[in-house]
Each structure stands twice: as C-alpha cells, then as structure tokens.
Design a protein around this nucleic acid. Structure first.
Lengths: 169, 169
DNA sequence: ACCTGAACACCGTTCAAGT
DNA sequence: ACCTGAACACCGTTCAAGT
C-alpha cells in the first residue's frame, strides 16, 4: 500500500540477509524491480532508510527488554539474545551514527527505560550496565574473544558483580 | 627512506586529522604527490594500510597500558585516556574488522596482557573489564550519553564494583 | 503520480605503457 | 625501480525527460 513502507521492508530484509554492506540504493531498487533514482521520489535519501531501520530496531529491542525489567541477569540475557539474533540490526544502530533527528521521538528512551528501572534508578549504574552489555556484545560480534570462550559465564560473573539483584527488605 | 613507511605515515596523519572516512587511496596518493595506482607498487592494497595502522595502534595502546598494570582504576583510566586522545585510531581498530593475518604477531596479546595481570589472571573478569571499558569508550565516542553526564563518576563506580583492587594480605 | 537514462563526483583496483 | 592514464565495476545523488 505505502510505497515507502515497501522500500523499508525490502531494505530491512536485505540488511538481515547480507549485512549493512549490501544496503545500497541500487540493490534495494533492484530488489523492487525499479532503478535507484526512483527511490528518491519516496524518501529523501539513504540516511532516511538507515534512520528508519534504526528506529525499527530500537522499538523492537525495547519490546524485547521490557518483560525482563527488574532482574539484571535476565535483562542482560535478553539484551544479548536480541543482539545475537539480529546482529546486522545491532550493527546498524550501534556502529553507524545514530540519526536522532529522524528517529521517532522517545524511542531511545523507551529502550533505556527497562535498564534504569532495573538498577533502581541509579544513572551511573544504568550507564555502566549498558556499557558492559554493549561492550560484551560488540566484542563477541566482532569475534574479539577466543573461539572457545565460555561467554555465558563471563556475562553471569560480570552482571552479578556490577548489578547484584535487589534484596527484598 | 622506505616508501612504504612514508605512505603509512601519511595515512596515519590523515586518519588522525580527518577520520577513517578520509582514508582513501586517492587522498593518500594526493598527499604524497602521486596518483592512486602508484600506491600498489608499495603495498598490496587498502587492507594492507588499514592492517598496518591497526597494528601501530595496538602497539601504542599496549605501551600506554603497561605502566598502569596492577591497579584496575588506573588501568581503566589509561585505556579511556588513550581512546579519547586517538578517537580515530580507536575506531579503526575497533569498528572495522581486525585484520589479524596481517598484524605483527603477539600485538593483540601484548595489549591484553596488562588487563589479565591486573585482575589477577581471571579470564572472565579480564574479559568483563575489557568489555566494560570498551563499551564505555565506544558509547562516549558515539555521543550516546547525555551531554552533561559525569562519566568520570560512572567509570569510577563501575570499575570499583567489577574489579576491586587486590587487598594486600 | 511514478519511473527512467544520463550524468556527476566519488570509491578500490588492474594493467598496459611510459621514464 | 617508479609512476602514469585509461579503464572497470562499484557508490549516493541530481535532473530533465518520458508515461
């Protein structure tokens, strides 16, 4: 129905299947059976596509994290699982500049909210836990750890030390 | 003297000054007063340049970390300082695939050694501390934290929790 | 309203040719 | 030994033109 959504769907499919390197205007257009210049009648340019896919990814990530709010271990697990399940989407939102101006408003905050709530509102702790999870995922996806490394154990140890679960008083 | 080193020096200067986006064969050649195809008489291609600069960066980072071995806080501080002082070099070794086959042997291990020693040999803890530092730096360089955030405090809190200094017995 | 071909300013890279 | 121009297969993007 909406041509713009069709384009974005194809682009997302291409991203998932072949990674950010395959996300070119000519490839997207080819998949739709048109020529690259035609895309510019429906969107402003490639940045528009990237920003839209970043927005979708953040919304999807937020939805994956929300049910795990409260338990740091479970939340970290959900973060890791989402990233490993959508590595190219994670790369697009994380390794490329986040195009904030074109993002649906509140999306970034929605993805951050479960984190802040889970650590009890401490901003520094929330940022640290985020950085830890991002760092672990980023290094894992970049194959920076030795092949046989037991990363489950690394995650468990690290999260437990950084953000021990709230003891009910 | 060695033309290859001259090329790498120029490339490194270009990287520091304008970032990875400016690191093109034509720009490097222009800076040297020659044409791009001439570069291929001295190196195999652009990957060769990237790998060489990644190697230099890791050696430099290792040298910056070594003196701080032993104290997790000081080590993390040195890591952060190096990354903020050479943001484009950090990006080149971290956001782009690490070209291990073309790296000087042992360089990756040399950069990791101070970390492993500092946490007392625990591999999981070493990986966690590395991921935390990388995640914090990566998010800071990507402007993912709010502008006024007191990141000094975030680092201090996070490192202290994850890797408390060894108590002398 | 939607799509096209041709063009522009870029990439990395190859190769025959010049000195 | 070192460098060159021309070319190839790519990029994102613009624009006059076609239906």
């Amino acid at each position: 129905v909406d041509r713009r959504e069709q384009i974005l769907d194809r682009a997302e499919h291409l991203l998932d299947a072949e990674g950010p390197g395959a996300l070119t205007m000519r490839r997207i257009a080819d998949d739709l059976g048109i020529r690259a210049p035609s895309l510019y009648k429906h969107l402003r340019g490639k940045d528009d596509i990237v920003a839209a896919l970043q927005g979708r990814a953040l919304i999807d990530l937020a939805a994956a994290l929300r049910p795990e709010t409260g338990d740091p271990i479970a939340l970290a697990g959900a973060y890791r699982r989402w990233a490993l399940h959508h590595p190219h989407r994670y790369e697009l939102t994380t390794r490329r500049e986040l195009l904030r101006d074109r993002l649906p408003p509140g999306v970034e905050a929605a993805a951050a909210a479960p984190l802040v709530t889970t650590v009890g509102g401490d901003q520094h702790l929330a940022r640290a836990l985020w950085a830890l999870a991002h760092g672990l995922v980023d290094l894992e996806l970049a194959h920076r750890f030795p092949p046989g490394a037991d990363l489950d154990r690394t995650w468990a140890l690290a999260v437990a030390r950084l953000a021990p679960p709230e003891r009910p008083s």
